[in-house]
Amino acid sequence: MNLFFSFSALVILILLAVIGVEAVKLEFLFGVIIPYVAIAFFLIGIIYKVIYWARSPVPFRITTTAGQQKSLPWIKNSKLESPNTTLGVIGRMLLEVLLFRSLFRNTKAELKKGPKLVYGSSRYLWLAALAFHWAFLIIVLRHFRYFSEPIPAFVPFLQNLDGFLQIGLPILYITNVLIVVALTYLFFRRLFDPKLKYFSLASDYFPLLLLLGIALTGILMRYFTKVDIVSVKEMAVGLFSFQPVVPEGIGVMFYLHLFLVSVLLAYFPFSKLMHFAGVFLSPTRNLANNNRMKRHVNPWNAPVRIHTYEEYEDEFRDVMKASGLPLEKE
């Protein structure tokens, strides 16, 4: 059901763009208005979400048991897994963001004959996730050849690295293979494991299918149904410098690609893809484990009226002195 819903949503979106551009000739709508609206949704949505999250107090350091915390000097502590300094937290965050450290610890529970419950490490999810995210990043960075003039130096650098196998013409990019293989694995992973399939929602399938759609339309455009890329750049530069132009005859495949990207951008703040901002706000990742070194006061504690012994003595000094009780201050 969830899968059916996601798949039909994608098919409807594709038909919408193809009919809109091919039959109704709405190039301006699909090439200019929808991308601008999508970017507005993306920026405002993300800022709203992040500020909304930041309004939840995190009064106490949530520590994880991944590493030995700092305690006595002769007990070796784990500086990256359980950091107690800001530098350590930054290190842990970098490991998490760049290498998905906590996904690497992923385990898998399996019911074997016996019946016996077996836990094992499962690195494939980590590997596919890492491959997908890095391929995606490199592809987006390579896309700066459409958005910028003069083209920044990292673009030719990445193109040479990515096309270093020099297979075919236009040269095959390694990231194009990686992104499709990784997304396909991540998608079928949910289908072939009954447990995973049981709790996969439309919001799990849809982003994967959408990203696969974006990657496949891009690949089709580069290697099979060609588009006029000079006009694409004219249009992209126009979009980003707020002087939109719609050149003639680019080809539907481009509008389809752009429309799916717009859908991704607009859907982003409402989706699980927000983990890109959420990872930075995860209390188990961004708080130093210094519960034992620093006092953390709960911000919503009601103020407690306290009466210290010094104040008590001040109040009753004369009486206490008269009855011969010992005093701290004379």
């Binding site: 800022i47 958005f147 003039e149 004219e234 980003f240 410098s241 707020f242």
Partner: peptide, 25 residues
Amino acid sequence: GIIIFIALFTFPTWYLFTSGEAAPM
């Protein structure tokens, strides 16, 4: 964090505006 995010996301726009003339076709 939000400022860094916006600056990165709008990189194409301010790059085009700061790099001078419009792209020569």
